[in-house]
């Protein structure tokens, strides 16, 4: 029973981080109407920034979110403005042009990281990396608990932004009806570019928060793109609340897979859950959340 609870709690904690990755992807999908296949790679960039900050100046990885979030935001805005957005205006044979562009961006980022940092595995050691909190017989990894709390704060902040501010409402309006949004005086181009930045910034936060409990190498990018994609599909495409559910489900599924099957099957379990959901609940978990 303890093992079960232990897995459940660990899964939930990591799921909180997956959730903000998924929310970022969902935002981008909602407004740009594309699957951002560079999502994990952008997370990898944030992880490398965090690693460099820690390695060079000894900056605490959790404090570094104050640097990675704005830095990645600006970087992603640039990608969106100069690489993705120009494609919207062009008529082409393939409507998926922008998706292909994100694939290209992803590849370039991975190979750039490889040429700068080599393929070596890296991780960081902080004074609290190995510390745990105990509730009864269940241990909670301290870095994951901190990461989970920060993830919740970011999620609440984002929901406040989307629900209560004109900017957030404009983002939702653009996602729902670009034509009407323009009539209301919302510049669809500005919102599109901004949303890519915002989605990537959440992704960046997840990257910084993951680094103390994860290892880092360039190909972590594609791995997290797949995870982000799975979370978004689990959540039912375009639902932010669904993305949270998707993130938690993926986190728990992976931890149970690692506990009860083999830690080598961690990622495989997540993908099996993904297939099951696609076959039996093609609409994703959105059916159950109704938001």
């Amino acid at each position: 029973m303890d093992l079960f609870l232990q897995s459940l709690v660990s899964g939930l904690l990591i799921g909180g981080l997956y959730a903000i990755i998924g929310i970022g992807m969902t935002l981008i999908m909602g407004v740009l109407k594309i699957i951002n296949l560079a999502h994990g790679q952008i997370l990898m960039v944030a992880m490398y920034i965090t690693w460099v900050l820690w390695h060079t100046w000894g900056l605490d990885p959790y404090l570094s979110i104050f640097i990675t979030i704005p830095l990645v935001f600006v970087f992603a805005e640039g990608l969106s403005k100069y690489l993705l957005h120009p494609l919207i205006e062009k008529d082409s044979i393939l409507p998926e042009n922008q998706v292909l562009m994100t694939v290209g961006i992803g590849m370039v980022l991975v190979e750039l990281a490889r040429s700068i940092f080599t393929s070596d595995y890296r991780s960081i050691q902080t004074s609290y990396t190995d510390k745990s909190l105990y509730i009864g017989n269940i241990s909670l990894s301290l870095p994951l608990v901190i990461a989970f709390i920060i993830a919740i704060i970011l999620t609440v902040g984002l929901f406040y932004l989307l629900a209560k501010t004109d900017l957030g409402r404009s983002i939702r309006a653009t996602a729902q009806d670009k034509f009407s949004a323009t009539l209301m005086g919302i510049s669809a181009a500005k919102i599109t570019i901004l949303t890519y930045g915002l989605g990537s910034a959440l992704d960046a936060a997840a990257g910084s928060l993951l680094l103390p409990v994860y290892y880092l190498y360039p190909d972590v990018g594609p791995l997290f793109t797949v995870k982000a994609f799975v979370i978004t599909i689990l959540g039912g495409l375009g639902s932010t609340v669904g993305a949270i559910a998707g993130g938690l489900v993926l986190g728990i599924a992976e931890t149970f897979g690692a506990t009860y099957i083999s830690s080598g099957y961690r990622d495989a379990t997540g993908l099996v859950i993904f297939l099951i959901v696609l076959v039996f609940f093609p609409g994703g978990l959105k059916r159950f959340t109704k938001v």
Partner: peptide
């Protein structure tokens, strides 16, 4: 062409940005 998933009030707010 309303913003269908937003409330009536939010739709009105969108007119006054």
């Amino acid at each position: 062409r309303l913003f269908n998933e937003m409330t009536v009030e939010e739709n009105l707010i969108m007119g006054s940005l």
